[in-house]
């Protein structure tokens, strides 16, 4: 196994008096494609938000290639190579498709370089067709593509995705999941995928973690989790 790129050590976080994460530890190797699963309220979204500093950790550390990024503000975390597609995509609907994409690369010194923009447009042909339209006019699937595209514009080392399949038709979900795997295989991108759609997520990822009430209750290769009836019934609901 290659060395871990993203390491989470004993991470805890809370909202006021409510504990949302209790001592979560996980590691994602370089070129890893990792699923974080669990029911509603298990702490998946909080985990991602704490990784990128949108939510402050109460204790524990987040390491990105040996650098402790826990104390950094979100806008700095992004420049270290972590990209985060929040739940619902977080597309700025008032901006055009192209502006949303350019926004993703604004912090980079080579932001005038158009190759990344062209690559993302190639990856998502519907976006290329609507590049000058306001993002508000996009369909749900197209918005999710735009959100992923904006994250890719930053040329991240790790891509965090929060429920990209939420509210999308099964066919589009399938395409997005396949695309993630394809990206990893072609470009070596590391991906952490948070999903409620456990069956879909486990079918494309190579490793999985199951959260319940803020703690990791099961982990292992995706194929093994898929085969483990007890975990499936207890936490994944299929």
């Amino acid at each position: 196994m290659t060395r871990p790129l993203l390491t989470v050590e004993d991470l805890s976080a809370s909202y006021g008096a409510v504990r949302a994460l209790c001592g979560v530890s996980l590691t994602v190797p370089e070129r890893g494609l990792c699923a974080v699963l669990g029911a509603n309220g298990a702490g998946k979204t909080t985990l991602l938000r704490t990784l990128t500093g949108l939510h402050r950790a109460a204790s524990g550390r987040v390491l990105l290639a040996d650098e402790d990024i826990t104390p950094l503000p979100t806008e700095k975390v992004i420049t270290r190579g972590l990209a985060h597609v929040p739940e619902g995509g977080g597309v700025v609907v008032e901006l055009t498709v192209e502006e949303n994409l350019r926004l993703g690369a604004l912090w980079r010194a080579d932001r005038r370089d158009r190759t990344t923009l062209d690559e993302v447009m190639d990856l998502f042909p519907p976006l290329a067709q609507r590049r000058a339209k306001a993002a508000a006019t996009l369909s749900g699937g197209e918005r999710q593509m735009l959100a992923i595209g904006r994250a890719l514009m930053a040329r991240p080392r790790v891509l965090l995705l929060d429920e990209p399949s939420l509210g999308l038709a099964p066919l589009i979900t399938r395409r997005i999941l396949d695309l993630l795997r394809d990206l990893r295989d072609r470009t070596g991108l590391t991906v952490v995928l948070v999903e409620q759609n456990a069956a879909g997520a486990l079918s494309v990822t190579d490793h999985g973690y199951v959260l319940n009430q803020g703690s990791v209750v099961a982990e292992g290769p995706s194929a093994e989790l898929l085969a483990d009836d007890r975990t499936r019934h207890a936490y994944l609901g299929f």
């Binding site: 990128t52 949108l54 503000p73 979100t74 806008e75 992004i78 420049t79 990209a83 985060h84 929040p86 977080g90 597309v91 700025v92 609907v93 008032e94 901006l95 502006e99 926004l103 993703g104 604004l106 912090w107 904006r150 994250a151 930053a154």
Partner: peptide
């Protein structure tokens, strides 16, 4: 504009 319309998305884009 990004910061005004959607502060969180702006922060996630390094703004």
């Amino acid at each position: 504009r990004a910061a005004a319309f959607h502060p969180e998305a702006a922060r996630l884009s390094g703004v």
